[in-house]
Simulated assay, not measured.
Amino acid sequence: MDKCHANKSIRCSVQQCKNHCSDADYCALESIQVGTHEMNPTEKKCTDCESFQMG
Rank of each mutant, 00 (worst) to 15 (best):
residue 1 M to R: 09
residue 2 D to L: 13
residue 3 K to L: 09
residue 4 C to Y: 08
residue 4 C to N: 05
residue 5 H to A: 06
residue 5 H to N: 15
residue 5 H to V: 11
residue 5 H to P: 00
residue 5 H to M: 04
residue 6 A to K: 03
residue 7 N to Q: 12
residue 7 N to P: 02
residue 7 N to G: 08
residue 8 K to C: 00
residue 8 K to Y: 04
residue 8 K to M: 06
residue 8 K to E: 02
residue 9 S to W: 06
residue 10 I to G: 01
residue 10 I to P: 00
residue 11 R to K: 14
residue 12 C to N: 02
residue 12 C to S: 12
residue 12 C to W: 05
residue 13 S to D: 15
residue 14 V to E: 09
residue 15 Q to I: 13
residue 16 Q to C: 04
residue 16 Q to A: 15
residue 16 Q to W: 10
residue 16 Q to R: 11
residue 17 C to W: 03
residue 17 C to Y: 10
residue 17 C to H: 03
residue 17 C to K: 09
residue 18 K to P: 00
residue 18 K to I: 05
residue 18 K to R: 15
residue 19 N to C: 09
residue 19 N to I: 02
residue 20 H to L: 07
residue 20 H to N: 12
residue 21 C to P: 05
residue 22 S to D: 08
residue 22 S to H: 13
residue 22 S to I: 09
residue 22 S to Y: 04
residue 23 D to I: 08
residue 24 A to L: 12
residue 24 A to V: 13
residue 26 Y to Q: 05
residue 26 Y to S: 02
residue 26 Y to I: 07
residue 26 Y to D: 00
residue 27 C to E: 01
residue 28 A to H: 01
residue 28 A to S: 15
residue 28 A to W: 06
residue 29 L to F: 04
residue 30 E to T: 13
residue 31 S to D: 12
residue 31 S to C: 00
residue 32 I to K: 09
residue 32 I to L: 15
residue 32 I to W: 03
residue 33 Q to N: 14
residue 34 V to I: 15
residue 34 V to K: 00
residue 35 G to H: 09
residue 36 T to H: 01
residue 36 T to I: 03
residue 36 T to Q: 03
residue 37 H to T: 02
residue 37 H to P: 00
residue 38 E to G: 03
residue 38 E to Q: 10
residue 38 E to N: 08
residue 39 M to K: 10
residue 39 M to F: 05
residue 40 N to S: 08
residue 41 P to A: 06
residue 41 P to C: 07
residue 41 P to Y: 06
residue 42 T to N: 14
residue 42 T to I: 11
residue 42 T to P: 01
residue 43 E to H: 03
residue 44 K to C: 04
residue 44 K to S: 02
residue 44 K to H: 00
residue 45 K to S: 06
residue 45 K to Y: 04
residue 46 C to F: 01
residue 46 C to R: 00
residue 47 T to P: 00
residue 47 T to N: 01
residue 48 D to K: 08
residue 49 C to P: 08
residue 49 C to G: 03
residue 50 E to M: 14
residue 51 S to N: 03
residue 52 F to I: 11
residue 52 F to Q: 04
residue 54 M to G: 06
residue 54 M to W: 10
residue 55 G to Y: 07
residue 55 G to V: 12
